Simulated scan of single mutants.
Amino acid sequence: MKRYVAALTAVLLSGCGSMNSMNPVDWFASEDNAEKPAELVGLKGSVAVRTLWSTSVGSGADEQRVKLVPFVEGNRIYAADSNGIVKALDAASGRALWSVDTELDISGGPGAGDGLVLIGTSNAELVALDSTNGSERWRARVSSEILSVPKISQGIAVAHTIDGKLFGFDAASGKQAWIYDRSVPVLTLHGSSSPVISGNAVICGFASGRLVSIELETGNPIWEVSVTAPRGRSELERMVDIDGDPLIIDGVIYVATYQGEMAAVSQDTGVVLWRRKLSSYTGLGADWRQLYISDDSDFVWAVDPRNGSKLWKNDKLKARRLSAPAVLGEHVVVGDYQGYLHWLSNEDGRLLGRTRVGEDPITTTPVVVDGVVYVYGDGGDLAAVSGSK
């Protein structure tokens, strides 16, 4: 925690850091005495990593600290860059099916469903494109920048804005159906948790460290719970953002906060089933028996979903600015700040393999579908990768 204070204080004194000013990744990069990233060591190559295809999606995040995550739906994968390019590609080959230049400053997305591709912009708009050809179907005004992935289900499109609001829109017309408002702290991380739709509920985490469940159709609250209460005297010490997306498994929501705790919450009631001290600003991964998470020191953990106890911890990638973990069979996969994709054993966390997808950071969570890892680098490199023993 102490290594962040100098850089952030400088930003605050310069007058540009009152809200959503920085991400811990920025702190590492800007501080003179930042911890040196762990060096990569040679591996015996027990996992054969193979790139199935790779392509470029414009300029990617273009150093804008936006939340652009590939979205796989059926045999298609949708991806966007921060300068307005949106593409639909064949998931098996990477061949472009369509590509459009929206000329928008895209900051969140894409999400897809109900025949639409949704993107959020830095100019406070939610835009719906036709999934068959990329033509614009509608756009709607929101209250501020969308730094999360919009979601859609049952005819309702949902977007989370950086100022702590959730918006619901009619998917056919783009007309606003409801709004849910949460106040945000004075100082927050630069990012937002993406909403997760489960049945008739929207689950979302907020910068205040609170997790909420609201009705998809009406926007009415079902329950609200504090995952971590802010502590400390300064605004910096009291930051407890939920920036990673909640993970729902068998009626239990797993979520983590920055400078706070990881918790399991009942989806039906909002009752906290367990908490454990763990600070993270990325999301979680899981298989049938374990949870996986990258903490704010870039240690990768395996945690027991029944009680939150540690099963193993890998510290060999410390300070390499890891993405959230994804799970592929017996392997846990994380990206790092140099464009490497690391493969860990789900049994004990040992490093088993790596490959490089471009030279830019991989900050978004790799997406695993049908035995393939889709990874999107911040510079716009999109690749499909597989691994086997």
Results as ranks from 00 to 15, higher is better:
S14N: 10
A34V: 05
I179D: 02
G15H: 04
G283L: 08
D304E: 10
N200V: 00
V202G: 04
D181Q: 13
A79Y: 06
I85N: 08
T55D: 11
W343T: 07
Q290T: 12
A256R: 01
A286V: 05
G335W: 12
V303P: 01
F299Q: 14
Y340S: 12
I222L: 13
V72H: 03
A112E: 04
L126E: 07
K67H: 13
P246M: 07
D130K: 03
I152K: 01
L116D: 03
A319N: 12
A96K: 13
E103I: 00
G155V: 02
S131K: 04
G209A: 04
H190L: 15
K318P: 01
E39K: 15
V367H: 10
D245G: 04
K165M: 13
L12V: 12
V369R: 15
I146E: 02
R231I: 01
I119M: 01
V86R: 08
N200H: 09
M1T: 15
E215F: 02
D181C: 00
Y254D: 05
V5M: 12
G270C: 09
A172N: 06
L13M: 10
W178R: 02
R137I: 10
S388I: 10
K44P: 00
V117P: 03
S173V: 02
L166M: 02
R354L: 14
T51E: 14
R321S: 14
F71K: 12
S194H: 05
I253Q: 04
G251T: 01
G199F: 02
A286R: 09
G113F: 01
R354Y: 13
S213N: 04
S234T: 15
T355R: 11
M22P: 05
G380L: 04
S194G: 06
G379S: 02
C16P: 00
K87I: 07
S21M: 04
L13E: 13
V265C: 03
L352Q: 09
F28T: 09
V372R: 14
G387E: 04
L352S: 02
E39I: 11
A96H: 10
T132W: 09
G120M: 04
S21I: 00
S54F: 04
G74M: 08
I156A: 01
G115Q: 12
L118Y: 02
Y292G: 05
V385S: 06
Y78R: 10
W312N: 06
V142R: 03
N33T: 14
R306W: 00
A324R: 05
I293N: 04
F169P: 02
L12F: 12
D32G: 15
R137W: 04
R210W: 08
A177I: 05
R231D: 12
A319R: 13
